[in-house]
């Protein structure tokens, strides 16, 4: 489904990703852990080419998305269309469009990008918003919603494009503690329906319960990966032990 091979990403002198290899099977939920600055978010942003990697290859459904006609830059539009119609992303800061209602947030891309009619887009958006428990907020504007509600709208917005893979970038980190569960519940449901998901998170409980695989990153490389129980309960690497120790101490 998705395969990363030797992915490198630099910002000026700073090498954020230093050769990342990762395989994700269809329907698999991969949780990515690691300290801040370890390159987790950048990895996700490479997968949907918000940050095209400089070296390495990313295969999405068999297609190398880093190799366009210009090769290696990831700026070729056929690549971007291919990737972004298959990969949905949800951000830490929600990034809802504040000048649009909840319904319009969800319908904008299907209408503008896929050229769907208003009726078709509205119908689908309503069903999705219903599914994330916001069927009664269609005409509200984002600023009137709680963080948890906004994040659920953002998930519905990404799902409206029928993605094959969903990327979640610390989607609960900006939320008040009591709102985390409602968002994680949506993720759980998605996972149970067989969505392929890459989840950058600090929620170890969620990783253990929902993840098929846990990946621990540090310093721009994958330090350790495996089944959640193995990585979380009996980590092999010193860095992983230390990190998990610090997180669990809280």
């Amino acid at each position: 489904m998705l395969s990363l091979q030797g992915v490198h990403k630099r910002f000026g002198d700073l090498e954020v990703l230093r050769g990342v290899d990762l395989d994700v099977a269809r329907g698999e939920v991969v949780c990515i852990l690691g300290p801040s600055g370890s390159g987790k978010s950048t990895l996700l942003r490479c997968v949907n080419l918000l940050e095209p990697p400089e070296e390495g290859a990313i295969f999405l459904e068999g297609q190398d998305i880093c190799k366009g006609p210009g090769s290696g830059t990831g700026e070729q539009s056929w690549n971007l269309d291919f990737v972004r119609q298959r990969v949905g992303m949800v951000f830490q800061q929600f990034n809802l469009f504040p000048h649009k209602s909840v319904l319009e947030n969800v319908t904008m891309a299907p209408r503008r990008v896929l050229g769907k009619s208003r009726e078709e887009a509205d119908g689908k958006a309503k069903a999705l918003l219903e599914r994330v428990g916001l069927g009664d907020k269609l005409s509200q504007y984002p600023e009137r919603l709680s963080g948890g509600q906004q994040q659920r709208v953002a998930i519905a917005r990404a799902l409206a494009m029928d993605p094959h893979v969903m990327l979640f970038d610390e989607v609960t980190s900006a939320l008040d503690p009591e709102l985390v569960k409602e968002v994680l519940d949506v993720l759980r449901e998605l996972a149970s329906e067989g969505m392929t998901m890459l989840v950058v998170t600090h929620e170890l409980g969620f990783a253990r319960e929902v993840g098929d695989k846990v990946v621990f990153m540090d310093g721009g490389v994958i330090v350790e990966e495996g089944r959640p129980a193995d990585v979380l309960d009996s980590p092999q690497q010193e860095r992983t032990k230390k990190f998990l120790g610090l997180v669990l101490e809280r």
């Binding site: 269309d81 992303m89 990034n95 469009f97 904008m108 891309a109 990008v113 953002a154 494009m161």
Partner: peptide, 11 residues
């Protein structure tokens, strides 16, 4: 993030 959200939706 506004542009990134829009771009990640395929716009």
């Amino acid at each position: 993030g506004q542009i990134e959200a829009a771009r990640s939706l395929g716009m």
